[in-house]
Simulated scan of single mutants.
Amino acid sequence: MVIAKFTAPAIEATRKKAAREKLCSLTSRERDVLALLSEGMSNQSIAQNLIISSGTVKDHVRSICAKLSVQSRFHAARIAWQANQFYAST
């Protein structure tokens, strides 16, 4: 218990750094899509917001997931959250 108290900040910092490094591989447009995805928006809503087609959003989400080595948009949003880049709306 005591060890966890002292190691938790270092572990969190390591996770944040790793998440930020992963996000560096994304294009600016992919980061735009990820920001909206992290807010829980659907592909259609993201498309309307960015004035692109929903098919293009789907391609961006697929690319984001591949670059971040994740299986779902939820996991991509989690990496963004871990990096403290985007904040989920409450």
Results as ranks from 00 to 15, higher is better:
Met1Ile: 04
Met1Tyr: 12
Met1Trp: 08
Val2Arg: 12
Ile3Glu: 08
Ile3Asp: 13
Ala4Trp: 09
Lys5Gln: 05
Phe6His: 07
Thr7Phe: 12
Thr7Val: 06
Ala8Asn: 11
Ala8Gln: 08
Ala8Pro: 14
Pro9Ser: 08
Ala10Phe: 13
Ala10Cys: 12
Ala10Asp: 13
Ile11Pro: 08
Ile11Gly: 05
Ala13His: 04
Arg15Ser: 00
Arg15Asp: 03
Lys16Trp: 00
Lys16Phe: 01
Lys17Val: 01
Ala19Cys: 01
Arg20Phe: 00
Arg20Leu: 04
Arg20Gln: 10
Glu21Lys: 12
Lys22Asp: 01
Leu23Glu: 01
Cys24Asp: 06
Cys24Trp: 09
Ser25Met: 14
Ser25Glu: 11
Leu26Arg: 09
Leu26Cys: 09
Thr27Lys: 02
Thr27Glu: 05
Ser28Tyr: 13
Arg29Asp: 11
Arg29Ser: 07
Glu30Asp: 09
Arg31Met: 12
Arg31Gly: 08
Arg31Asn: 02
Arg31Phe: 08
Val33Ala: 04
Val33Asn: 00
Leu34Val: 03
Leu34Ile: 02
Ala35Glu: 07
Ala35Phe: 03
Ala35Asp: 08
Ala35Ile: 02
Leu37Trp: 06
Ser38Asp: 02
Glu39Tyr: 06
Glu39Gln: 08
Glu39Thr: 06
Gly40Val: 10
Gly40His: 09
Met41Gly: 04
Met41His: 13
Ser42Gln: 12
Ser42Phe: 04
Ser42Asp: 04
Ser45Leu: 10
Ser45Trp: 11
Ser45Ala: 13
Ile46Met: 10
Ile46Tyr: 06
Ile46Gly: 05
Ile46Thr: 08
Ala47Ile: 11
Ala47Leu: 13
Ala47Pro: 06
Ala47Arg: 08
Gln48Ser: 15
Gln48Glu: 15
Leu50Val: 13
Leu50Glu: 14
Ile51Arg: 15
Ile51Pro: 15
Ile52Gln: 10
Ser53Asn: 15
Ser54Glu: 15
Ser54Tyr: 14
Gly55Asp: 15
Thr56Glu: 13
Thr56Ser: 14
Val57Ala: 12
Lys58Gly: 15
His60Pro: 12
His60Lys: 15
His60Ser: 14
His60Trp: 10
Val61Lys: 11
Val61Gln: 03
Ser63His: 03
Ser63Trp: 06
Ile64Lys: 00
Ile64Pro: 01
Ile64Leu: 00
Ala66Lys: 15
Ala66Val: 03
Ala66Met: 09
Lys67Asn: 10
Lys67Cys: 04
Leu68Thr: 05
Ser69Asn: 11
Ser69Met: 12
Ser69His: 08
Ser69Lys: 13
Gln71Val: 14
Ser72Cys: 00
Ser72Asn: 05
Ser72Gln: 07
Arg73Met: 00
Arg73Ala: 14
Arg73Asn: 14
Phe74Leu: 08
Phe74Val: 12
His75Tyr: 11
Arg78Asp: 05
Ile79Ala: 05
Ile79His: 08
Trp81Asp: 04
Gln82Asn: 11
Gln82Met: 03
Ala83Ile: 05
Ala83Met: 01
Asn84Arg: 10
Gln85Arg: 07
Phe86Leu: 02
Phe86Asn: 00
Phe86Tyr: 01
Tyr87Val: 05
Tyr87Ser: 00
Tyr87His: 11
Ala88Ile: 02
Ala88Asn: 07
Ser89Val: 02
Ser89Lys: 01
Thr90Leu: 04
Thr90Phe: 00
